[in-house]
Amino acid sequence: MARKEYQKRLDELREDVLYMGEVVQERMRMGLTALESKDETLADEVITRDAEINELYLALERECTDLIALQQPVAGDLRFIAASFKIITDLERVGDLATNLGKYTKQAERDVYPDVDVQGIGAFALEMVEDAMEAYAAEDTDACYEIDERDDELDAMCERASGFVVRDLIETELTEDTTDAEIERLLADVSRLLLTIRDLERVGDHAVNVAARTLYMVENDDALIY
């Protein structure tokens, strides 16, 4: 095989993107655990270690740029690099959303609406990311379509959860004894919960993006992009 060094760099890029995917998934797990157990130490770790993900992102971005500038990739190689370039952006955003979970953990003083299954939604979204990265690794286009379909389910879960919270908030009866501080605290708690649900829904969107770019990479098919 010709261009051995180039092929080696392509293989390494694939490995590094998969590694970044693993780091991001681990960070999501930590964020969800911190949120569930109100573990501020773990939350701090999630927040501070976001810098690692950012560094990984920048290194891989540089590698993609170098490969394009120096190796002039074409055809399948070009699609692989272009797709990877986009996928690392999505992974970096998932890392940011995991960081948000750490921040919400530190801001929360109590559980509001414990009936809302944040952990279930989080696990669902995380599994989509895991499967999207497996699809990328295995170049599994069937899995790409399947992940896209699953996003509708996640959206419905999030919409139900948000609707439940908003409806309940509207129906909450405030008495004369309710202080302004209590009202502000309630609103802050509800806003945080709604933001958490929104963030988890976005994790699913990023998983779909990974699947969409994988489909493009494998089959030059942009059916799932937008």
Partner: peptide, 14 residues
Amino acid sequence: FENPDNQRVEDYIT
């Protein structure tokens, strides 16, 4: 150069 039909062409241009 983006998506050749033929695998041998893909192998050659890459």
